[in-house]
Design a protein around this nucleic acid. Structure first.
Lengths: 244, 244
DNA sequence: CGTAGACTTGAGAGTCATCAACGTAAGTGG
DNA sequence: CCACTTACGTTGATGACTCTCAAGTCTACG
């Protein structure tokens, strides 16, 4: 967590986008090798964090965007009555902290869900480099636009069933993008967190998973979910049964 | 709606950010006079549109962002079953079309709610200029981050009452920013649209407005809403009773 | 082996949607 | 000016869905 001064950063904290396997999912997507090296110069690795560790606390001054390197995180706030509200779960290659750009301080706390690491991208430097690299600039715009359109889909489906089905379908798609099986999900978060994210209760999640299972859509084993019929699940999510 | 070729644009379509009264609310916020003139060179005025006129249709190729100049618009989609979903209402100085940046086509249809005009900001040129003007760049980031954090607040409150109260409080704050009365709201959209936006029904909106009125929080006269007790309204919205 | 937290399942209650009837305002053409 | 139309808005009755509360089971881990 503690880090030495800005200069003389230990070599092991330096991470190279140019050699990262998540290149094509992450910020560097579409950049040329030469330009990638400009990014290499600012990326700092943090972690490993363990389940429950806090990377950023809501209210912290905005310094950097974070790209998940391994494991997963949740972004969440505490509301006026001390209740948690979860805004997103973040997988490797996904950018966190975008909500801090406008107010210049973080709106969300970022907490590790399992053993996880991130790359920190100091925003001032990033913005500077983005001034010179149109592709990087448009990639930042795209990532922002992406989380914008994601937020809009989350609560779009009205019924509890459609929301949970949509959650599973999304997770499946994101795992596939990352080279994992699209049918075997491991949930790194408890039922309560899924419920919170979808504006439901843990009991409802339990009941719905049981219903999906008895309808042969999925097989549930604790936090391992096997998707048996992806297209029926999409229909329950009120999604087009088409690949993205 | 029809416009002549890219060259020789009629003078009356040229609009100048440098002379616009919405400067401080809109994209140019914080730019120097000299830089403002760079923006002047790309802004094109469109309209006037009338209630129901469509500015952009979902699926249209992404060419430009739009800043509301006068009147108001709604952004909405049509879902898998032909049902409308409203994502936002947009007042003068607000940017529309941000959701199109990532997929490079518009996700939302933009429709005028009353007599209204916009400034079109061709994105390619805008992005070019943003490469040279760090302040403009960070302003675009901020506007994106802003709509991100706005989306996250809309459905945050769980009860119907809190959501509608929040809607009124937000509208009031945005009108105040624009120099209008924060207590006298004119709703440019029907109850059905408010309901849709908040994931409720028109009947529920009616009943809640009636309840707020009988609790002396507001006075309702058709689409004119007078806010009698802003701080109680904020409490119903589960918001901190503090100015932004 | 015992405890704490996560998860499941059941019963009852409350909120909001649905359906339906009616009232009101604005616009049209006679 | 007045019937007529159409869209919008209000109000009431009913019911479904999901939350809350409660009890009990399972799992992980010291």
């Amino acid at each position: 967590m503690a880090r030495s001064g800005a200069d003389s950063i230990p070599a092991e904290l330096r991470q190279k986008c140019s050699q990262c396997s998540l290149q094509e999912l992450c910020l560097p997507r579409g950049l040329h090798v030469h330009d990638l090296e400009r990014l290499d110069s600012l990326v700092l690795c943090e972690g490993p964090h363990h389940a429950g560790d806090v990377l950023v606390t809501a209210g912290d001054r905005f310094r950097a965007l974070y790209a998940v390197r391994s494991g997963s995180y949740k972004s969440h706030t505490i509301d006026y009555e001390g209740r948690e509200q979860i805004w997103g779960f973040h997988l490797p290659g996904e950018l966190m902290g975008l909500d801090a750009i406008h107010p210049e301080h973080h709106l969300c706390t970022l907490t590790a869900l399992d053993t996880a690491t991130v790359c920190a991208l100091p925003f001032e430097k990033l913005s500077e480099i983005a001034g010179e690299l149109p592709k990087l600039r448009s990639q930042i715009f795209r990532m922002l636009g992406k989380s914008l359109s994601e937020q809009t889909t989350r609560l779009r489906e009205e019924s509890a069933e459609a929301r949970l089905a949509g959650f599973l379908v999304d997770l499946s798609a994101r795992l596939r993008e990352r080279g994992f099986s699209e049918r075997d999900l491991h949930l790194s978060m408890p039922r309560r967190d899924i419920a919170n994210y979808l504006h439901l209760t843990a009991e409802t999640i339990s009941r719905l998973l049981a219903r999906f299972q008895s309808d042969s859509l999925i097989a549930v084993d604790h936090r391992e979910i096997h998707l048996l019929d992806l297209s029926k699940l999409m229909r329950r999510a009120h999604r087009e049964v088409v690949e993205t």
